[in-house]
Design a protein around this nucleic acid. Structure first.
Lengths: 366, 366
DNA sequence: TTTTTTATTTCAATCGTTTGCAATCATAAA
DNA sequence: TTTATGATTGCAAACGATTGAAATAAAAAA
């Protein structure tokens, strides 16, 4: 009851408060303008330069003025104006992130990794989504330019085949690091998962579990990850002397297309007994389709995904998948970018490609 | 096979390329500094003011100089320096977003909505995650201040009970709009889903489907959403003359806690036949637990979630849930913030609370 | 007492852009 | 020819902080 009363009281306060909002913000009108170094200077009868130096413990400043300045600064709640500093230093301590879609678990995991590193190094992150649209991505690169970010992290859209908009960033001396979806056509750093290895161990696992006929649901082949995972699939088959068959490879990297394709395939008499999907969503769609057609997973059909998303752990049966370590990938990409920002233009540029090892996570779908 | 060969070729190209990266970036050193209005001015023998005015079609400028300036500007690829403008206008055209965790589908949907509106209005979004930590959230509000964003959108962490850090933003005359997780303790705008209504129709649905004993997996009660959904649950029961029982309400708003709690409850002889979970993840955990205990969903146990996440559509059986319309919620919050930014300080401030209606999405878990 | 040294502090320019006001020039009116 | 008019353009200050160089004051040396 006590608690309730407290709340009530609080409510009344709010009510009153909301009727007279002016009274509260009224005395804030003199706060309207952020207080500057100049304010401190005039109040203390000093010049702005002295105040500036006092605040950063410059040895030229006498202890008396130093303490006086710092005291007043603290009292007034002075915060240096970042914008002014940005202008002077020609740097915003901001990094731009161009990404297809936040709502994929993999990308949000990457963002977490990026943010951790950025945060530790006092950088902020500006996020721009391309929504898998090339056109939007081009606009994003412009936005990144006008916002004068110090560097950019990019995973490009599925539609992107031309990279001149990124070249423009490089021309403007803005360091760019590509991650996950990368290209060799630009002189820029890259951080990628070991897609080839991941695909290889995934398919290898399926074969060892007894699969004789393994289908691959692939990503578009303009993406490097699409190519690499396909070739990992290809080579794992070869290792076990299973012939590679074109008709077992299907372009299906979304839940919807994968579900439809899986339905079509599994209905046929000599349907595959194993599936390696380019991502978890496709894999889950395959499981769903199989169950709908009365096939048991993993007894009749085994499925391996790629991502190790949250969904892979909640699907039924739980999905065997390849962990891409999105968080680490994001961390590494950000670390690489910050390194470039630190070294500046003095060093001769030599693109680095960092590969993050992947790992098989065995669950009940195989 | 053709495809594979293509890949090989590409690999060779890469190898060559990485050996001679210098040749590509070599001629970019003369582009180092961004070109400014001053460059155009000196090249044309004009003053910076004239160039500035010419670029924005000021009527005072003669057609000749105007075209000359614009031509040269286009040729040199001039882009106004946003930082300088920021300083002059005391505005960054940036909004700060403080959010618990991007990786929840609901929040990423909200971000999409926010970004759409921001993008249309030529604003950029800076993202700060609190990771459900109060301490980190306080730091985020400081970061938002030093970055001099024009306004802030906030959904606070589960740990947050003290709101003085947000009051500080308001004191600094930075408009703040709270969404989803909000408070009445601050004079600020709010955008929330109709949590009460959502909970009510969810539980009502369970009762109509024949459930006699319905448990609620709730969110922490310091969050308004926790309270509202509980009271929706409460009132729906009352409407059907079902007594509200304290022992049927459990704090379980994550997959892990929900799974454990559901296991405990469902093992008992007089287990509930219906569950209303505060979010989809908890709901899916309940389904999982039920299946593991040999109970059939929806025959023995019916489950309703809250969110309408991607996962709710892929769970098996597919989850009946409440659509929160995260995208629209994000849109509305951003629209509200931009409106505040436009009106400035001249209008007397009166906090607005916008409620987004929710919707029952019936699937196979009920 | 004058000069030199040292300790503090201030001046002024800079970053890139905008904008009120003054200045210049040519043309038209007186 | 002189003055008023209008069309262009330039000057300089402003936004807030930093920094090399100059200036001032105070203390020390001559």
């Amino acid at each position: 009851m006590q608690a309730i009363f407290k709340t009530r009281k609080c409510c009344i306060f709010i009510q009153l408060f909301q009727h007279f909002p002016g009274t509260h913000t009224g005395n804030q009108t003199n706060m309207k303008r952020q207080i500057t170094i100049k304010d401190i200077a005039t109040k203390l009868g000093l010049s702005t330069s002295t105040v500036s130096r006092a605040l950063k413990d410059h040895p030229d400043i006498s202890p008396k003025t130093r303490t006086a300045v710092k005291e007043l600064a603290g009292l007034l709640g002075y915060r240096p104006n970042r914008i002014a500093l940005n202008l002077r230093n020609n740097s915003t301590r901001t990094i731009g992130l161009i990404i297809p879609e936040i709502e994929h678990y993999f990308f949000s995991a990457i963002i977490n990794g990026i943010e951790e590193i950025a945060y530790k190094n006092d950088y902020s992150v500006m996020v721009f989504q391309s929504n898998e649209s090339y056109k939007r991505e081009v606009i994003n690169t412009q936005a990144v330019l006008t916002n004068r970010v110090d560097g950019v992290l990019v995973s490009f859209s599925k539609e992107t085949n031309d990279f001149s908009h990124f070249q423009k960033l490089i021309d403007n001396e803005i360091p760019v690091v590509f991650f996950d979806r990368t290209t060799e056509e630009l002189p820029a750093d890259q951080v990628v998962a070991d897609d080839y290895q991941g695909a290889f161990i995934a398919v290898n696992h399926l074969i060892e579990k007894g699969c004789k006929k393994i289908a691959h649901f692939a990503a578009p082949q303009n993406l490097q990850i699409g190519k690499s995972r396909l070739s990992g699939y290809h080579d794992a088959l070869l290792k076990h002397n299973i012939p590679f068959r074109h008709d077992l490879v299907h372009l299906a990297d979304t839940y919807e297309t994968a579900k439809k394709t899986a339905h079509d395939i599994l209905r046929k008499p000599d349907a595959p007994d194993g599936f390696f999907a380019v991502n978890d969503m496709s894999a889950i769609a395959i499981i769903k389709a199989a169950k709908e057609l009365g096939k048991r997973v993993p007894e009749d059909v085994k499925v391996v995904g790629f991502e190790n998303s949250k969904s892979s752990a909640i699907s039924d049966p739980e999905l065997t998948t390849i962990d891409q370590f999105g968080f680490d990938l994001g961390r590494e990409a950000c670390i690489m970018l910050l390194k470039r920002l630190k070294e500046g233009d003095d060093v001769e540029f030599k693109p680095i490609k960092k590969v993050i090892k992947t790992k098989l996570v065995v669950r009940s779908s195989t």
